[in-house]
Simulated assay, not measured.
Amino acid sequence: MEGLAKPDYATCEISTNASIEEMIPPCALVMLTSLILGIFFGIETLSGVIYQLF
């Protein structure tokens, strides 16, 4: 409680790695949706979807 002990960063690394692994599917969904819309439906559809999101 005096602030002299060094922190244990290894326990934090476990939760950081788990949270990064949990973010892979949502990121892949966003990237794949943009690619699929652009390739199959054209740039107009992709720009319309992006416009609706913002």
Rank of each mutant, 00 (worst) to 15 (best):
M1S: 15
M1E: 04
E2H: 14
G3E: 01
G3A: 01
L4G: 04
L4D: 03
L4F: 10
A5M: 09
A5Q: 08
K6V: 06
K6G: 09
P7C: 00
P7G: 03
P7M: 04
D8T: 07
Y9T: 13
A10R: 09
A10F: 04
A10S: 14
A10T: 12
A10E: 03
T11R: 14
C12I: 12
C12H: 13
C12Q: 13
C12G: 15
C12P: 01
E13T: 12
E13S: 15
E13D: 10
I14C: 06
I14A: 14
I14Y: 08
T16R: 13
N17Q: 12
N17T: 11
N17C: 11
A18P: 05
A18M: 07
S19W: 10
S19T: 11
S19Y: 09
I20F: 13
I20R: 14
I20Y: 13
E22N: 11
M23I: 06
M23E: 02
I24Q: 01
I24L: 03
P25S: 02
P26W: 00
C27P: 02
C27W: 04
C27Q: 07
A28E: 03
V30Q: 06
M31K: 09
M31F: 13
M31W: 02
L32C: 08
L32F: 13
L32W: 02
T33L: 12
S34P: 00
S34Q: 09
S34M: 13
L35D: 01
L35H: 09
L37F: 08
L37Q: 05
G38W: 01
G38D: 00
G38R: 01
I39K: 08
F40W: 07
F41H: 07
F41M: 06
G42A: 01
I43C: 06
E44Q: 13
E44C: 08
T45K: 14
L46G: 01
L46T: 09
L46A: 10
S47G: 01
S47R: 10
S47E: 02
S47F: 10
S47C: 08
G48D: 06
V49H: 04
V49G: 00
I50E: 05
I50Y: 03
I50G: 04
I50D: 00
Y51I: 05
Y51F: 14
Q52N: 12
L53R: 05
L53M: 07
F54E: 01
F54R: 05
F54D: 04
F54Y: 08
